[in-house]
Amino acid sequence: MAKDFRYYFQHPWSRIVIAYLVTFFNFLIFAEDPVSHSQTEANVIVVGNCFSFIMTKYPGGAWNFLKVLLWLIAIIVGLIAGKFLFHQRLFGHLLRLKVFREDHGSWMTMFFSTILFLFIFSHIYNIFLLIAGNMSPYIITEYMGIRNESFMKVAAVGTWMGDFVTAWMVTDMMLQDNQYPDWGKSARAFWRRGNIRIILFWTVLFSLTSVVVLVITTDWISWDKLNRGFLPSDEVSRAFLASFILVFDLLIVMQNQSLKVLNMAGR
């Protein structure tokens, strides 16, 4: 392969460094964001409605049955509509988007479709509450019924699962790839030996995830005590940091697609 821009763009070191930087930057913005320490009630547009619809604000009695029934119907309708209406009919047949060909992107479409229908059915549930009267404390809004601190901890755990699994899968792909035969010869030979790859992948994933969840939920490590003003941030720097995370996420997708094209051309 000629050592042009594409050579360095999809080089294993480039892909691995970018993938792990996303994980690091996400934890940095979690540690520096004042919302992570806020004791006020969390409110997130749409997502807050879905969360409180399923998890909080249960009036009791027959209202609980109605609420559970409605969000179960919303999930089922969302999954079916996401698969057959949005993915197959809209994106596949009508718009003919190649990224959604066959079953590609179906899980993502079904996930967002489920959120949409949970949001819609939460308002249908609100209509029943308004008709009944005197049920204003149980009206579903973007307020989630939990503190911002708790919400950010849940978000940090979810971010870790998404980012580290992505980075760890990129590492696994690079150690199995043959496009750069001179890169990491000993590491690739060790990774491919027997079942070492499978054992190490799941052992590292579960062990590190357990440690991270423990640290986040128990506040065992205090970033403010470790930082001591060495790396201060404000709204502008955190906005740029969030932009870097978005750009790096897009770079991971671009690197993956570029490598797929290269592999198909090599075949």
Rank of each mutant, 00 (worst) to 15 (best):
Asp234Glu: 02
Glu235Gln: 07
Trp183Asn: 02
Asp182Pro: 00
Lys185Pro: 12
Met161Val: 14
Ala242Asn: 08
Thr166Pro: 14
Gln176Trp: 11
Glu235Gly: 06
Met173Ala: 15
Ile198Lys: 13
Ala155Gln: 09
Val204Pro: 15
Arg192Ile: 09
Ser237Leu: 10
Trp220Glu: 02
Ile245His: 06
Pro232Val: 03
Gly158Leu: 07
Thr209Glu: 13
Phe230His: 07
Arg188Trp: 01
Trp223Arg: 03
Lys225His: 13
Asp172Asn: 12
Arg192His: 03
Val165Arg: 08
Trp183Thr: 07
Met173Asn: 14
Leu214Asn: 15
Asp224Trp: 12
Ile245Pro: 03
Val204Leu: 10
Leu241Asn: 07
Ser222His: 06
Thr171Met: 06
Trp160Ile: 10
Arg238Ser: 14
Val165Asn: 15
Trp183His: 06
Gly194Ala: 07
Ser233Asp: 05
Phe240Thr: 15
Arg238Ala: 13
Arg188Tyr: 00
Ser207Lys: 03
Trp168Pro: 13
Ile199Arg: 09
Leu214His: 11
Ala155Phe: 05
Arg192Tyr: 02
Ser243Asn: 15
Ser222Cys: 05
Ile216Ser: 01
Trp202Phe: 08
Thr166Ile: 03
Val211Thr: 07
Val211Tyr: 04
Thr166Trp: 07
Leu241Ala: 08
Phe164Lys: 02
Val204Asn: 02
Leu200Asn: 11
Phe230Gly: 13
Glu235Ala: 09
Leu226Arg: 00
Met173Glu: 15
Asn178Gly: 14
Thr217Ile: 11
Arg192Gly: 09
Trp202Ala: 03
Asp219Ala: 00
Val204Ile: 11
Ser186Gly: 11
Arg238Thr: 12
Ser186Ala: 06
Tyr180Gly: 05
Ser243Gly: 06
Thr203Ala: 00
Gly184Ala: 02
Thr171Val: 06
Thr209Ala: 03
Gly194Thr: 01
Thr159Ala: 08
Leu226Pro: 12
Trp223Tyr: 09
Arg192Phe: 09
Gly158Arg: 06
Arg192Ser: 12
Lys185Ser: 14
Thr171Pro: 08
Thr171Cys: 12
Ile198Gly: 15
Phe244Asp: 12
Arg228His: 15
Phe230Glu: 13
Ser222Phe: 00
Phe164Ile: 02
Trp168Gly: 04
Phe240Leu: 14
Asp234Ala: 00
Ser243Leu: 05
